[in-house]
Design a binder for these strands. Sequence first.
DNA 1: CCAACGGCATAAGCACATGTTATAGCGCTG
DNA 2: CAGCGCTATAACATGTGCTTATGCCGTTGG
Lengths: 317, 317
Amino acid sequence: MPLAHPVPDLVSLDLLQSVAELGSIRRAAMAHHVSQPAASMRLRALERTLGLELLDRSSGRARLTPAGTATVEWGGAVLDEVRALQLGVAALRAEGSTQLRLAASMTAAEYLVPGWLNRLRAAEPDLGVSLQMGNSEHVADVVARRDADIGFVEGDTVPATLDSKVVSRDDLVLVVAPSHPWSGRRGALSAAEVAATPLVLREPGSGTRQVLEGALGACGLSVTPLVELGSTTAIKAAVGSGLGPGVLSRLAIRAEVREGRMVIVPTSGFSLERAIRAVWPKAVVLSPAASLLLAQISRRADGSVADPEGPTRSSRR
Amino acid sequence: MPLAHPVPDLVSLDLLQSVAELGSIRRAAMAHHVSQPAASMRLRALERTLGLELLDRSSGRARLTPAGTATVEWGGAVLDEVRALQLGVAALRAEGSTQLRLAASMTAAEYLVPGWLNRLRAAEPDLGVSLQMGNSEHVADVVARRDADIGFVEGDTVPATLDSKVVSRDDLVLVVAPSHPWSGRRGALSAAEVAATPLVLREPGSGTRQVLEGALGACGLSVTPLVELGSTTAIKAAVGSGLGPGVLSRLAIRAEVREGRMVIVPTSGFSLERAIRAVWPKAVVLSPAASLLLAQISRRADGSVADPEGPTRSSRR
DNA sequence: CCAACGGCATAAGCACATGTTATAGCGCTG
DNA sequence: CAGCGCTATAACATGTGCTTATGCCGTTGG
């Protein structure tokens, strides 16, 4: 569903951020290479679209109001995601002649790589990165041919010519809208119940559909499609609008679940978990940039970063 | 520091989202109440600014390219944060006559409330919400006067006239830039080492400064300011640029740490942790909306939502 | 107490981005 | 092969946003 109006402007949010950092509209304007009146008008326009007084100009120097500091923080979260998008896009666009060449499966590329690049950029701001996307076989192939320095694939089968290391995990989960009766359900669903329920699914032949069919098939069951859609986003929309339960990668619904727009229904009796692995050619030293990236990704596992998002605790797998 | 160019446009990202959901540019245009050519041109402009081919129009119907699906997902994360901002702003702007009146301390309002509202809106889309911000005493006062249905405060001291429940936790942490020598440090810093180090701090008298001084004071030590800045954002900028170690609320640096732009340096020997509590008048039944919100916040603690962000595990407190 | 300075707002002019309607081309489908 | 649905292009109107120039105000230092 489309964004509600009015939509704030990214450039203005970014400008407000600079005002907060630098303490004056003038300096913020300089940092953004625009004239001071332009910055002033932009900020006034932002205040108008949000309907809030963000800045107190009464004392010569512009100071943030309480609403302004809140907006700075909320806007900061938006801008962080924009930066991740920009890094991902830049990596996708990069043609050869860069220093770190990545290859990643769709899931890893979409949900994990931008965050990794964000962290990598903190340590090596000027490192050029390129990213190639494809299915797991394609990634393994690209890495084996030395067309990428390091790759990221889903699944536990790795060609014998490649070294690998598990860097993350992903699994398919059953999700429903918060209004769905199952959203308050206590016990886990059995494989038979899942098979008997019409589900919002990807089309036959897609990776996630195959994994689901395989897991149910191992129990002698098969899936019952309610509708079949061609994209993860379409499934999110259908499930979110209450059409029915859907099956999606846990990574794909991270934000929706965190913010309560979807609810994961626990299941039992079958597992749809797969590892996400870094892969690189065996008997070849990793390039310095690739080994730095791998080290950064692995260091995250040391538990030093607590999840500050409310009292949520990660389930231990 | 300002956003890098080129900056994608939120409306275009939102439009692309609709194309992914609805399967055609035409329908996306209708969903956004603009003409089809306008949508077509917007998407072309987005492709130009990102330097990527997002849509394959060769087959009559527009279909997403691999780069397009990646952009849809990255853009979805951006739009999720925008929605949180909009909810927070709407709640700040709301004047009386709404159905749920919140009051929250700055930290809770900035970092937690928008996410809660996002979840609440999934269950009650038409609920009006207002939000009042202030320090903890002010929040307790507003709630006691029945000017808010429920409040959120930091700290463990709650007036006797109020009921309370811990809904989250926050603590101050020592952070450095990834380039700082301490970022790779193994052991924890002692209170004496922290006291001996010049730090980037808030000004004397601010809440976070007082907490830090209190904790060190209990060990017979005092802080050594390197610079004193007037806002959390200014401290983030100073620490991020490598000026020196800083002390900030863990909630405030969530995104920075997750993406590796800052590193938390472990400390030991003193604690800067405080609970974040919901508070409401004792001997008064919570309004239905308030109790729903409280239930949703509390339900998050049941562990059903695993953190899918890489192999990170939450530390258990 | 006054002068100088830094910072913000307003005004006028201009370029360009973005929207609209009308129309043509193209790929499916029956 | 004809019709339909989808998209691109064209031509035009309009408003947004930037720039430079200038005035006002609050702060600061002698």
